[in-house]
Design a protein around this nucleic acid. Structure first.
Length: 206
DNA sequence: AATAGGATTTCCT
DNA sequence: GGAAATCCTATTC
């Protein structure tokens, strides 16, 4: 995926990433198909780290699209985001879940579980499966290099759902979580979100 | 099946 | 010192 892909409105990038792949070459190859993402906007979004301001680690959200923003959540889990926004704007997309395509064996080892649906069905799980850490990967260019996005097959409009974001104390009601409604590799099923919609319909309302 | 509690780092008050 | 964009295990129904 080239830089231009990420230099668009953040929710649009979150939706567009579904179906594409996140790959890692070093130290061993892994490839997963992205099935769930969330958009985090600028300081006007109460759920976004941007509320912490540009002088904090979240200052990454102000920088050039296409680079990784990796932080630690609850002291344990690494969260992989990609900076994504229009010029002079702010935001990033959290990669929340993906389906193993290649390199399953090594990912099973890192995760300590067998079932393919438990390899990367959650942001902390996904980072662990790929071996992504804040110290190693925060700020790396995800358009090229060992850890990067690669073009896969785009998910059809009628197959992409939007829901509120997960795990937020504030701003969770915004419809900014995007998922492949047919995938069994998501972090939580659509049925658990009474208030969901069709992604492209919601995006058009802006 | 559902829920409760523990793990344990990083950043900011 | 406390909160944080979570996950796993154990315990209970």
């Amino acid at each position: 995926m080239d830089r231009g892909f990420f230099a668009r409105p953040t929710p649009e990038v979150a939706r567009a990433l579904l179906g594409h792949e996140i790959v890692r070459e070093d130290p061993d190859p892994a490839r997963l198909r992205i099935v769930e993402t969330e958009a985090y906007l600028g300081p006007e979004d109460p759920g976004s780290h941007a509320t912490r301001g540009p002088e904090t680690q979240a200052g990454r959200l102000w920088e050039e699209p296409g680079q990784a923003y990796v932080y630690v959540c609850y002291g344990i889990h690494q969260m992989l985001n990609v900076v994504a926004h229009e010029p002079d704007r702010i935001g990033a997309v959290l990669v929340r879940a993906a389906e193993p395509v290649d390199g399953l064996g090594r990912m099973q080892e890192r995760r300590g579980r067998e079932a393919p649906t438990e390899i990367a069905s959650g942001p902390g799980r996904l980072a662990e499966a790929l071996g992504v850490t804040r110290s190693e990967h925060d700020g790396v260019d995800l358009t090229r290099g060992s850890l990067r996005f690669e073009a896969g097959e785009e998910v059809a409009a009628e197959q992409v759902a939007v829901t509120g974001r997960i795990g937020l104390s504030e701003g969770g009601d915004h419809l900014l979580r995007f998922l492949d409604r047919d995938s069994s590799h998501v972090s939580r099923s659509l049925a658990d979100d009474p208030d969901h919609g069709l992604a492209d319909v919601e995006l058009r309302k802006r």
